[in-house]
Amino acid sequence: MNQELVLDEKLQTLKNLAWVLYLFHAASLVFSMGAFSWIPLIISYVKRGDAAGTFVYSHHTWQIRSFFWYLFWMALGVLLFISIIGIPLAWLIWVGAWIWKAYRLIKGFMDLNANKAMEI
Rank of each mutant, 00 (worst) to 15 (best):
A75S: 09
N113H: 08
L21C: 12
G96Y: 05
I82N: 04
Y70S: 03
L89V: 15
R104H: 13
L80P: 12
F109G: 07
L21K: 14
K116S: 05
S37T: 15
E9T: 09
I106Q: 10
F55D: 10
W100I: 02
G96K: 12
E119P: 04
A90V: 01
M33Y: 13
F55T: 04
I43F: 12
A52P: 00
W100E: 02
L112A: 02
Q12H: 08
L41I: 14
L79H: 00
V20H: 13
L71T: 07
W98S: 13
W100D: 01
I43K: 09
L92D: 01
F72Y: 11
F55Q: 01
H59W: 07
D8A: 15
H25A: 03
L71F: 15
W94Y: 07
V95K: 05
F31N: 06
A27I: 07
W19P: 00
I106N: 06
L5F: 01
I106D: 03
S58D: 10
W19F: 14
M33L: 12
E119W: 03
Y57L: 06
N115I: 01
V20M: 12
K15I: 08
S37L: 01
R104V: 05
I82H: 08
D50V: 00
D111K: 14
A35C: 10
F109A: 11
K15D: 03
A75R: 07
M110D: 07
Y103E: 09
L21S: 08
F31R: 05
R65Q: 02
K107S: 12
K116R: 15
G96N: 12
A97T: 05
L29I: 04
W69V: 15
Q3G: 07
Y57D: 13
A51T: 03
S28Y: 04
K10N: 07
K101G: 00
L29K: 04
G86H: 09
G34T: 03
L71K: 01
G53Q: 09
N2F: 01
W38D: 08
I42F: 09
V20F: 10
L7I: 00
A90Y: 04
M1G: 15
G96H: 05
L17N: 14
Q63G: 06
G53L: 05
L105M: 00
M74I: 09
W73M: 15
S58W: 08
L79R: 02
I93G: 00
E9W: 07
S44L: 05
H25D: 14
K47H: 09
R104M: 14
A75Q: 06
W100C: 03
L23A: 10
